[in-house]
Amino acid sequence: MPETEQGANERRGRNETQEERADRMWTELIQEVRVAQMGVQILFGFLLTVVFTPTYARLSDMDQTIYLVTVVLGACATGALIGPVSLHRLVSGRRIKAQAVQWASRLTLLGLLLLLATTSCSLLLILRVATHDDFVPYLVAGVVGWYLLCWFGLPMWARYRHTTR
């Protein structure tokens, strides 16, 4: 194959219909959501038990507030990350899979942001209780920066760097 034809074929990407693309994207999205769902469900389950421990009553008002905010964020993250499953079930067979993939993708991204907030608040609470040191907010900010880099920065850089325009 001449160089120009080969280059043209490589740029076109997959040879799939809109329905095939939606099916592939849905499968990929659900695999991604499974990973995030597992993490948020374990974290949320753990958070729900904390209020029933004797230590909870000894937390300062500020730490109890952080805990409550964390639990609400965890509940919201769980809802957003389970949302794509419900969305798929309710619109299945309605011939709107491409739109469902878009909405499920948005819910997943929202769920990841809420999971980031939940994890950050959990870390803040644990480190405040464990150390009582002034460096805790800086440590948490560093971890949040790391999550932002791993979850969003590197993927966005790769998207920018390797996407054909």
Rank of each mutant, 00 (worst) to 15 (best):
P2E: 08
P2Q: 08
P2V: 00
T4F: 07
T4A: 14
E5R: 12
E5G: 09
Q6K: 10
Q6C: 10
Q6V: 13
G7D: 14
E10H: 03
R11M: 12
R11V: 13
G13N: 14
N15L: 01
E16C: 15
T17I: 08
E19N: 06
E20A: 08
R21I: 07
R24Y: 14
R24E: 15
R24L: 15
R24N: 11
R24Q: 13
Q31S: 13
Q31H: 12
Q31F: 01
Q31W: 06
V33R: 01
V33A: 04
V35A: 07
V35L: 06
V35P: 04
A36W: 01
Q37F: 01
Q37E: 10
V40T: 02
I42R: 10
I42C: 06
F46I: 15
L47M: 10
T49G: 15
V51P: 07
T53I: 09
T53A: 11
P54L: 13
T55M: 15
A57F: 03
A57S: 12
A57Y: 09
R58A: 09
L59K: 11
L59A: 09
D61S: 15
D63G: 05
Q64T: 13
Q64W: 04
I66G: 02
I66D: 01
Y67R: 11
V69P: 00
V71I: 09
V71W: 00
V71H: 01
L73N: 00
L73W: 01
A75G: 08
A77L: 07
T78M: 03
G79A: 01
G79S: 03
G79R: 02
V85L: 05
S86D: 06
L87W: 10
L87M: 14
L87I: 13
H88L: 00
H88Y: 08
L90H: 14
V91M: 07
R95M: 10
K97G: 04
A98K: 09
Q99A: 06
A100H: 06
Q102Y: 09
A104N: 00
A104M: 04
S105Y: 03
R106E: 14
R106F: 13
L109D: 03
L110F: 01
L113G: 10
L114W: 00
L114E: 05
L116N: 06
L116C: 14
L116D: 07
A117W: 02
T119C: 05
T119S: 06
T119F: 02
S120L: 10
C121V: 06
C121P: 02
L124S: 01
L125H: 09
A130L: 15
A130T: 13
H132K: 04
D133G: 03
D133P: 03
F135Y: 11
F135I: 12
V136Q: 00
V140C: 04
A141H: 02
A141Y: 02
G142P: 11
W146I: 12
Y147W: 06
L148E: 13
W151S: 08
F152G: 07
L154V: 14
P155G: 11
M156A: 08
W157R: 14
W157Y: 15
A158V: 09
R159A: 14
